[in-house]
Structure formats: structure tokens, C-alpha cells
Nucleic acid binder design. Structure first.
Lengths: 343, 343
DNA sequence: CAGTAGAAGTAAAACGTTTTACTGGAAGGA
DNA sequence: TCCTTCCAGTAAAACGTTTTACTTCTACTG
């Protein structure tokens, strides 16, 4: 590797001069010298060592985004928002995919925290047992931001959140108003706060409308297609009657749809299905799935902005932001009057 | 930030000792001292600075994977394979998503190359104009590997490739053998080598079977759903008759499917559709789309293994690997005899 | 008792930059 | 002529580690 020293030698100047020129701080370096340096840099194909640079500047200009499942378009949107914001601010984004594995998530956090990136954005996956890491990071003033990860113990961490309770409430209400009484619910992985909140919204709606909560209709999913499929199959096999199903995210709703189809059910005539997230999926099902839109991209932009403020040492204008969700009717629900109940 | 120096002072030992203990090189440090050091490290919440460490070891133990479109499940699979291989080898993977933007890709390469990562895996997106960067990297011995990116100018870069020509040939042959003569083709972005090869396979099959190549049936897509949709719509609107459509990847095939459905076409009765990649999509369409399976995960594992070898300074056993593809019939094609030709 | 080996540790260089505080000389002004 | 200012540039410290080569002491061997 060619270093700045070699450039300096070859140019017959000091390394200070080279450094200055290369960093555009050469207010008092003659044009000839500058030119000569640039020429030699080109010639020797010199690439400054960012690691050495970071050591003295204490900056990498990189941030990391930790996501549980990059194949979920919801997180792909988050990634895009974060990336865009980074790029327009001279930062770079490293994406870290944990595959919903706590250990992997933690390992990433541990590694990244060693100053490899200037800060991180962490999405979902709660793992209370590891909250201590965040407390340490908070103590040592390491900049990080949450997206959709809430913990009472970590109230002071800036974050960006969807109004999950309200969202789940309103989509459940939609089903109730169509006359549904037996509404199945697929949770997300209960290690995440949003999975809890969505369940809470569902429960609250049922309670407010004086409908019983049937624990048998509530099943634990994993926010993935296969989970939605499996749990719905299980529900259908058990023959507990239900006329609507609320999957905590769209991916599971897809799985539920598939399971229902295989069971020969017409959607929405025989079964209403709703999801959550409003992900942009190429899946060409008909009808598409009614859902709650979460402004993932905007949330990511906001989270990144907050993080960058933190990195610059500024207190961000808002450090906790809640986003309202929007009901998107795509036709996968129907009034119960039309329901031809399946056996 | 607490440094190794502070730990050393608080323990009343030299920093050498601390470093040794922390790196498990303390073959000759007494157990008491070790224990004391660990206690103080814990107490002060010391996190070694990876940047400083990297500077002397010249290693980061991180590699980067650059992908054009992380929302494409094909690349999500690649990412998983790479990540897995990294983790089992004590490395970490940073994912960089370029959104198919050459400039962004290049910026990433430029930044990463400054020793922020020990090497990189670069997938698709050719941009000949920038090949010079790779030549430089080759010259300076910077470790990198291609997945599905081929350039004659860069023959010496190790890489892992799908047998695109053969694959495209055989799936086209499948259509021809069903009696199709007018087979539309949606290309990928022609800045990628694999888009070219798939087109070549298609052409070759037509030629071998003495079928004319109709340029009007070949349209340039972008490997995304919207591209498949748009180009298929355009084809259908032009009323140039075709009875089969070969989309260069599954994402575009989804778009094509959607377009065809909107046109009221039955699939496969009125239009046979095939894709490429065999991505694992939740889209619950029926029939699913016949495709060529590319062993993305395995390819990524291989590419990562090669890269890690390179990083360790070993010459990898194989530095250019071609993977055969497998035809997967999912029922989206039908013999032409059944085709009720659309107007 | 001299010599040696091992145990437990240390001082200092090195990694490749940036940055702070300085220097030598030329030009300009009084 | 002397003083000041500006220009063009430099030396050296600093960043936080790892690593090489060394030291000191104790215990053991013959």
C-alpha cells in the first residue's frame, strides 16, 4: 500500500502539505505544489487509509442500520430511507441483517460500537436480557436511535415509532364494523414491542365493542410468510370458527391467504383477512390485502436525521416521534352478512 | 471514551499487559493480574477501539457485499449466504445497497476500498466506464470477488457465476418444445453481463430451432416488477402477437403476470410465462411461475469463501466457479395447442 | 555457588493519518 | 533600514492499539 509519506517524498514536500491539499485545507499552498501532489497521487494510485484517518478525526462517516429481516419489504423501505438520508449528508450506510437472531444482533452491536461506525439505527427485536448493552451505550454517549423498538427501561433513547396500538385498534374496528365477531389474530414475535402493541390494539377494540377475547383465536407468529401460513393452517384445522383474520404484518397475511386458499376458502366472501405494514409486494394476489400503512421510508429518514444530529453533537429537535398510520382498503374484507361460513 | 491506557493505569500495569490479556495472548500473565484487568474493564465499561486496532493489525475482520437491489429476494438470499459464511469465520458483513445506481455503487467501492473492510463481494451491475477502479484494485492487490458480474477486461478477478446462457437456452427450449414460436423476451438492464447472457441464451435457442428473432418482441426491462409490468403492457397494447413470454428474472415475470391478468389473459392457457432466479416470494399467484433455479445461497457461500481465502493471502482453490441452473416447472406454461389466441 | 530457565511483565516503536503550533523568507510600508 | 504581514510550508504530537524485543526476579540444576 502506498502511503501519504511516499507521496510526500516523491513530491519533495512534507506530509502535512499533502494531507492539507488532499483535504482541501490548502489555503496557503501554491497551485504548482497542489498540482504536483495531485499528479503523483494519481500516478501512484494512492488511496488514503480511512482507518488511520478515523483514528485521528474520531469519525468514520459511516452509520449502521440493524434490521431483523431484510427480505421483508418493510425493512427494505426503511433501508432506502436511511440510505438516502445518509448519502445526502455525506454518510454511508452499512446494513446489518440479523435474521431475527438475538445473538447475531448483539454481536453486531458489540462490534459496531467499537467505533467502526459513528452511530447506529436499530430496528425492532427487543431482547430485554441484552438491554444492558444499550444502557452502557447510553452511559458512554454512543449515538444510537431506535425504530419501532420500545423499552420502558430505555426511555431516554431517541426513537421513531408507529402508532401501533391505534393502528391495530382501527383495523380491528373495521372488521368489527363489518359485523365480524370471531376475529383470529396472528401476533408477531413477542420479543418485539410492536408485536405487543398490535395485540393490545386488537384486544382493546374487542373489549371496547364488548366482544369476547378468545385466546384460542390468538396465535403466535413470526412476522414471516411461513408463520402466517402455519398458524392459519393450524387454526383452520382446529375448526374453531372465525370469519376474519388479522395478521400482525402483511407477510403473515400472505401466508394466511395462502393457507385459506388451500382450504378452499373464498376471500373475502368466506374469510376476511387484514394485514399490517402496507408493504409493496409484487405478489399478484386478488384481492390484495387490506392493511395499515406505516410510513416506513419517512420514519427511516427521520430516524437517520436524529442520529446524524446526535453524531454532530447537537440535540435533535425531536427525539421521539410517533407516526400515525393509515387504513388502506384493498378489498380483502367483506361484511359478515355475505359470509358463507365454512364448516 | 475510556482507553486501554486508563485501564492500565487503574490496574497498575503496562498497556502491553492489558492488551495481551484482552487478546488472550497472556500466556505469561498471572491469573490475579488477568482477573484484576477484567474487573476494571468491566467496571469502566471499556470497549477497545476497533479503528486503532485495525490500524496496527491491518485487519478489520469486516467485509462488504454490494448489491444492486436488496428488495429482490435473489439478493436477499445472496446476503444470507454471505452473512452465514462470514459469521462462521469470525467476520462481519456489511450490506451496501446501490439501488441500481452506478454512482452509488462506485461511491461505495471507493469508500470501502480505503481499508474500511478487508475485502468486498460485488454483485452484478456492470459499468464499463468504471472498470478502471477494479483494475486499480487488482493492481493494488485489494481483495474482491464478483458474483454474476463478468467483464472481459477483468478476467483475473475471481468470481462465481450462474450458467446464464445455458439456463436461458434451456427454458426457451422448453417453450419452443411446447410449440411456441412467438416468444416475447424482457431483458434485464443491459449494463449487467447476466442480462446479456440470458438474452444470448434466448437468441441461441430460437436460432437453433430455426425460429425467427423478432426484435419487436424483445424489450428492455430493469429486473424489477414495475419494469416487467410496463414492458408487458406495452407489448400487449401493440398487439404484436405472442403466445409466450420469457422475463429475464422472476420479479419482472410477476409484473408481466399482473399486466397479462389486467388484460384479461388466462395463464397459462392464453399466455405462457417463465421467469428466472426461482426467488422465494410470498406472492400467492396461481399458477406460480416456471423458472430457472439459481443456487444463490450456495454461490454466495462460495464467493465469500474465495474472498476470505484471498484476505488470508491464500490462493483460493477455485477462483472462477460456474453454477449450473435447474429448470423448475411451476405450471405457468402450456402447449400452444391449448392457446386461445388473444386478439 | 554460578548458571540457566522460566515467569511476569515492560518500554518503545509502529500503524497512517490530521492538526497544532511553528519557521523562513519575501514583500510592503514607514 | 527596520518592522510587519503574508505566503508557503514544516516538525512533531496525537489518535489507541499491537507487537517486538527486552528486563527483572525467582527458582532450580549441577
Amino acid at each position: 500500500m502506498v502511503t501519504i509519506k511516499e507521496i510526500a517524498e516523491k513530491c519533495g514536500v512534507s506530509i502535512t502539505t499533502v494531507s492539507r491539499v488532499l483535504n482541501n485545507k490548502g489555503d496557503s499552498i501554491s497551485d504548482q505544489t497542489k498540482e504536483r501532489i495531485f499528479r503523483v497521487v494519481e500516478e501512484l494510485n494512492y488511496v488514503p487509509n480511512a482507518v488511520a484517518r478515523s483514528m485521528v478525526t474520531k469519525r468514520t462517516n459511516n452509520i449502521a442500520l440493524i434490521v431483523p429481516d431484510i427480505s421483508n419489504p418493510f425493512f427494505a423501505d426503511i433501508a432506502k430511507g436511511a440510505e438516502k438520508t445518509c448519502v445526502t449528508n455525506g454518510f454511508h450506510l452499512f446494513l446489518c441483517n440479523t435474521d431475527m437472531d438475538k445473538e447475531v444482533e448483539n454481536e453486531y452491536i458489540r462490534v459496531l460500537r467499537k467505533r467502526l461506525v459513528d452511530g447506529m439505527i436499530i430496528t425492532t427485536q427487543n431482547n430485554e436480557e441484552y438491554d444492558v448493552i444499550f444502557e452502557e451505550m447510553l452511559d458512554s454517549n454512543y449515538p444510537f436511535v431506535f425504530i419501532e423498538r420500545y423499552s420502558d427501561k430505555l426511555k431516554n433513547v431517541p426513537g421513531v415509532f408507529a402508532s401501533n396500538i391505534e393502528g391495530a385498534y382501527s383495523i380491528t374496528k373495521h372488521l368489527i364494523e363489518l359485523g365480524h365477531k370471531d376475529i383470529a389474530f396472528l401476533t408477531g414475535p413477542l420479543v418485539t414491542s410492536n408485536a405487543h402493541y398490535r395485540l393490545e390494539g386488537y384486544r382493546k377494540a374487542l373489549t371496547d365493542y364488548k366482544l369476547p377475547i378468545n385466546p384460542e383465536l390468538i396465535r403466535n407468529g413470526n412476522y414471516k410468510v411461513d408463520g402466517g401460513y402455519k398458524e392459519t393452517k393450524a387454526l383452520l384445522r382446529k375448526k374453531i370458527p372465525f370469519t376474519a383474520l388479522f395478521a400482525s404484518n402483511d407477510l403473515m397475511a400472505f401466508g394466511a391467504y395462502q393457507a385459506a386458499k388451500e382450504f378452499g376458502l373464498q376471500i373475502p366472501e368466506q374469510l376476511s383477512i387484514v394485514g399490517f405494514d402496507n408493504i409493496n409486494m409484487p405478489g399478484v394476489i386478488e384481492p390484495q390485502i387490506t392493511t395499515m400503512d406505516i410510513p416506513a421510508y419517512d420514519m427511516a429518514v427521520k430516524a437517520t436525521t436524529i442520529l446524524l444530529d446526535l453524531i454532530e453533537g447537537q440535540t435533535p429537535k425531536e427525539s421521539k416521534v410517533y407516526y400515525p398510520l393509515q387504513f388502506i382498503n384493498k378489498g380483502s374484507t367483506a361484511p359478515i352478512t355475505e359470509v358463507k361460513r365454512f364448516a
